[in-house]
Simulated assay, not measured.
Amino acid sequence: MDSALTTVALPIALGIIMFGLGLSLTMDDFRRVGKQPKAVAIALGCQLVLLPAVCFALVLLFDLPPLLGIGMMILAASPGGTSANLFSHLFHGDVALNVTLTAINSIIAIFTLPLIANLAIAYFDQDNDVSLPLVKVLEVFAIVLVPVALGMLVRAKRMAFADRMEKPVRIGSAAILAILVLGILLDQRENVADYFAQVGAVAGLFCAASLVIGYVIPKALGVTEGQAIASSMEIGVHNATLAIYIAVEGLDSTEISIPAAVYSLFMFVFAALWGAAISRRIRLSSAA
């Protein structure tokens, strides 16, 4: 589970992508987010309160075995993954909001992830406990903030170059994403069928619910279209690698990591389909 694909190749690839995203950002983007805290508060409320409740309801509805139930709750408590920034970029979301949410939620997760995980462990009458390793928090910051900052620095110094690179970066990002999805499938090909049979329905429903909740609720509460798209991707694209790490390294259980592994396959496909559907609806509305 905790293979070179998830621990080495994925962070490197996403770091390169984050640099590309930084080429499209300026400090004004972040100042605008700071002046509009409503979108941040709504997204964090959905991610920290609503999603764990929805996940727990699905765990009970499908009567998952204890270890798989704990794995789902750890996934629900994990912050947004760096891939959320990529999807937001591809579908014209507010990338600055994504970066801000990832940074804030990664800090909050130091406290909320162990709390929710340990509540799940207690509910299912297991004997372990869990904490969030500081090294994983630092990894999230390194993968997201450092490459983005370098990209922004390049844009500040060479704006014309950054503008020329916007389209190639979008195309390259989509290609890297496709390669990553294919790599995950090939890496887990011997176990994919068993994993889907055990927890596929719950993981798929939770992924779809996360994406829809992350878009519909902020939109209903009056945030902009770009911010709603960013919120949807941030809430729907969890840091499955972190959840797998917690399960395998923190709790010494491969079975607890299964929900995150299965979810990671759903989220790439569902996020792409959901983003395409939103983009199509926006185009049709504009045309009308």
Rank of each mutant, 00 (worst) to 15 (best):
L273G: 05
T6G: 09
R164A: 08
I278Q: 00
L150V: 15
T82F: 00
V140I: 15
D29G: 01
D252A: 13
R281Y: 08
P37D: 03
K157W: 11
H89N: 11
L138K: 00
L186Q: 06
G80L: 08
V192M: 09
A208I: 14
L251E: 10
M159E: 11
I42A: 04
A277Y: 02
F111D: 01
V262P: 01
V262C: 08
S131L: 12
F266T: 07
A162K: 01
A240L: 04
T7V: 11
P218I: 12
R158I: 04
L134Q: 04
L251C: 12
F268W: 09
F30D: 00
A13W: 05
T82C: 12
K38T: 08
G214M: 05
N128I: 15
Q36A: 13
V223H: 04
R280H: 09
F196E: 06
P168V: 09
L60H: 13
V192T: 13
P133M: 08
A203S: 13
F62K: 10
T7R: 15
L44N: 03
G71A: 12
N191A: 12
S106R: 01
A77N: 03
A220E: 11
G250Y: 08
I282D: 14
A117I: 07
L138Q: 01
L138T: 10
S3G: 14
D163V: 12
A160G: 01
I176W: 05
Q47P: 00
P37H: 00
E139W: 06
F56D: 05
G22W: 04
G15Q: 02
F56M: 14
R280D: 10
A201E: 03
A174L: 13
T26K: 06
G34M: 14
L58E: 03
L61E: 06
A272H: 07
V130W: 00
I116M: 09
A53N: 01
